[in-house]
Design a protein around this nucleic acid. Sequence first.
DNA 1: TTCCAGGCAATAC
DNA 2: GTATTGCATGGA
Length: 225
Amino acid sequence: MSSPKIEKLYHLLFEQYGSQGWWPLITHEGTNPTSSGVHSGYHQDDFSFPHNRSEQFEICVGAILTQNTAWRNVEMALHQLHEQHILHNPQALVDSSIESLKECIRPAGYFNQKSAYLRNFAKFFISLDTTPTRKELLTVKGIGEETADAMLLYAFATPSFVVDAYTRRFLEFHGILIGGESYRDIQHIFHNELNNEVPLFQDYHALIVEHGKQYFSKKPYGDTL
DNA sequence: TTCCAGGCAATAC
DNA sequence: GTATTGCATGGA
């Protein structure tokens, strides 16, 4: 069921797009904007590891806001949160009124749900004294499998592969999936076929998203790899 | 105007 | 455990 094509596809994507430098931080703008216009700058030379708690929190907030939502919309919300000084301060986020929180994140959609999700997570984040486990993250209302893995991989530098809608389409297109596989089934393929290294997992997922935006939005799909 | 976007929880079988 | 549905904005 698993396939050695997984590693080969990574190299093809890398050849086509190069290193993506995820996660994109709005407060740490890089010098190599991607074709999607996103600031891919997250420490050019050491993008695998957030340097401080504020960056970890920003990444996690972005991971929640981007659920089923275009990153362009998320950026607008992140900038408004930053203006209100609650993007890097989980306690300030918890203390802010739910109404002002909703106004900040309105551009990212689902603001009634996501405002509650952000509060839940901020409280959880404040209580952390070490890196959370996947299981612990999943107890927070608003954090599902993909969001948990995105946080683990990009905020907490833990090698847990992120499986999103583009990943499914990409693997189905290349005949590695037949359809109907569970999230964990798909994640296991990556974990089994690749060295479980944070920079590799980070870049592979980012490359799939970049490629997905170009070729796996509207059917019929037209992959060129 | 319609469709889509880096999902999730609640609900029903 | 798998399938379905509501949630919301801004851009193409």
